[in-house]
Every structure is written in structure tokens, then in C-alpha cells.
């Protein structure tokens, strides 16, 4: 099994596409943090700034067109700003962990790239004809497929780690290495303002995001295994991802949508207390994702095991 996985890793690593993706991943991550630094304005008096923010938030809340999620987000921020003034707690000074938390969008980039790699790993063997020589070895088809799946999963995990490390490295150049004990105000699952460890929140967000990444990887992998077409797998997966983002909004109105993977695939919603529906919890989302992963993986396994290889 180790041999099979190192084979698959060798095939991923020796492709040009992989290196283009890794380059983009690092460039975009570093670029985002640099841009953020350049547009930053220094704060002289945090109390005045918070009061200003409160006024702005209140103004926003009076606008009707605000989407439910934006509305909830603004309310949360308002709540935290008020709490700061009442309890005289200054915002934390800029540090790598807080910066990483703010860039949760980078996780979506990891998802997109992971979809592209996952779409190729099985269908490419078919289009290049190499599947024949791969399958006539003393290994069951299940093992071959599993080794491919593990390899893309590991690769996706590496990309996530690269984003984390690059983001941390670039921010550390601007803000210093940061202190592991730094705390900041967050809303807990009950919606109360709580002081939490920023480093742990960051690790939680990036760590748990592996599950949504894996669910898109599995989707793309399954489509490409079943249809033997990587372009379709990328297309369908990206389409679902984009449509999925708008479904998060609709989920607040239509209850059963919460059982679809979309409203569950953004872990940052739980870090910032923005569940699509009040009854949805982190555990619920992770369970839904795990079920989808099992279903997609099972489907591709059944098809791959049975199919005549022409």
C-alpha cells in the first residue's frame, strides 16, 4: 500500500500542472497578505475607532436589502464593539494568527486547486491508456483506487498547510512572530461574547476546513472516476461550489437545504458565529460532510471495481 501511494505521489509531483498550482497558491497567499498590509491604516485611539464602527454598523443594519448573512455578521460585529467599550477591552494588536483568521477565503482557493488535481488523478490514467498496465498488477482495484484517493487527500492537506505556513510567514515579517497566548473577543456557539485564544481559533478553522476540502476533493474524484473525464469533473465541481455559496443564503429560509453539503462547507461561519440556520452546529456540519464524503467515495469505488476497462 505504501508503494502504491508513493507511486501516486510520484505521478502528482512530476506533473507540470502541480507546480503551476503550487506557484499560484503561494503567490496568491503571499500577495493577499502583502496587499492587506499596504492598505492598512494605523489606529491611534481605539475607543474613538470603535465608536465610529458602531455608528457605521447601526447605519448598515437599517438598510433592508442587507442579506441575512451580512445582517448577522454586522450584528455580531456591533455586539463585539459594544462589549469592548463597556468592558474597556482594546482590540488585539495585529498579529499573524488574527491575519490568518481574516483570510478564510484562501481556503476556497485550496478547494479549487484540490478539485483540479482530484479530477485528473483517475481520468488521466484512462485518457493516456496507462490504466491497463496499472491494473494488471497483483493489487485489487479497490487498493489502487484507494491509494489514489489517499494521495489526492494528502496533497490537498499539503496545500492547506502551505497556505497556512506562507500566510504565517508573510504576516510574521510585518507583525512579528505573534504570541501563542494572545486572546481576542469572539462569539461562542450560544452567541455570547467570549474571550478566546486566537491561535487555537486559527488552528480550529484551518484544521476543520480540511473536511470541506475533502468533500469537494471526493466529489471531483468521484465524477472523474465515473465519467472518466477530468474537464467535466472540474466543471461540475466548480459549478456546484459557486452555486453552493449562494445556497448558503437560501438555507436560512428553506430548512431542508441544510442537509446539502453547501451550507456546511464553510467552517469560518462557525468561527464567527454565522450559522446558516440557528439550529445548525459545527458538529452537524461536520457530520453532513462526512456522510457526503462516504457516499461519493463509495460510489466511485463501486463503479471502478466493476467496470470493464477498455
Amino acid at each position: 500500500m505504501i508503494g502504491l501511494i508513493s507511486n501516486e505521489m510520484m505521478k502528482i509531483v512530476n506533473r507540470k500542472l502541480t507546480w503551476i498550482i503550487l506557484f499560484l497558491l503561494i503567490a496568491i497567499t503571499a500577495g493577499s497578505f502583502v496587499m492587506n498590509k499596504l492598505t492598512e491604516e494605523p489606529v491611534s485611539d481605539w475607543r474613538a475607532e470603535q465608536s465610529e464602527l458602531i455608528e457605521r454598523y447601526q447605519g448598515q443594519l437599517e438598510i433592508d436589502e442587507l442579506s441575512p448573512q451580512m445582517h448577522a455578521d454586522t450584528e455580531n460585529k456591533l455586539q463585539i464593539a459594544n462589549y469592548r467599550l463597556e468592558n474597556d477591552i482594546a482590540p488585539v494588536s495585529e498579529n499573524p494568527w488574527s491575519a490568518l483568521l481574516r483570510f478564510s477565503g484562501l481556503i476556497e482557493m485550496v478547494i479549487i486547486f484540490a478539485i483540479v488535481i482530484a479530477a485528473d488523478v483517475v481520468s488521466r490514467e484512462y485518457t493516456s491508456g496507462t490504466i491497463k498496465l496499472l491494473l494488471i498488477r497483483p493489487h485489487s482495484r479497490s487498493k489502487i483506487l484507494f491509494s489514489k484517493y489517499i494521495s489526492v487527500a494528502v496533497f490537498a492537506l499539503c496545500m492547506l498547510a502551505i497556505v497556512f505556513v506562507t500566510g504565517y510567514g508573510v504576516s510574521a515579517m510585518f507583525y512579528g512572530f505573534g504570541n501563542l497566548d494572545t486572546t481576542d473577543l469572539f462569539l461562542n456557539a450560544g452567541g455570547e461574547v467570549t474571550e478566546m485564544n486566537v491561535f487555537l481559533q486559527t488552528v480550529k478553522m484551518y484544521g476543520l476546513s480540511f473536511l470541506p476540502i475533502l468533500s469537494y476533493v471526493t466529489l471531483s474524484f468521484a465524477i472523474s472516476t465515473i465519467l472518466r473525464n477530468s474537464a467535466l469533473a472540474v466543471g461540475i465541481s466548480l459549478f456546484i461550489m459557486i452555486v453552493g455559496n449562494s445556497i448558503i443564503e437560501a438555507t436560512s429560509r428553506i430548512s431542508w437545504l441544510k442537509y446539502l453539503p453547501f451550507a456546511n462547507s464553510d467552517i469560518s461561519l462557525y468561527i464567527f458565529h454565522l450559522p446558516a440556520r440557528p439550529e445548525m452546529t459545527l458538529g452537524f456540519s461536520l457530520t453532513v460532510l462526512a456522510v457526503y464524503i462516504a457516499v461519493f467515495a463509495g460510489l466511485s469505488w463501486m463503479v471502478f471495481k466493476k467496470r470493464d476497462t477498455a
Partner: peptide, 21 residues
């Protein structure tokens, strides 16, 4: 049918690939 091997790998890497199996 055809000797379909991994074109983006070297001949040696191809053999190593099958040897590992």
C-alpha cells in the same frame, strides 16, 4: 494493445513505478 506508459515520467521512473507494485 499499445505500450501506453507515463509520458511525463522518465523510462526509469516508469519501471520504478511498476517495480514498487
Amino acid at each position: 494493445e499499445n505500450p501506453d506508459l507515463y509520458k511525463y515520467l522518465t523510462g526509469y521512473q516508469n519501471l520504478k513505478h511498476y517495480a514498487r507494485m
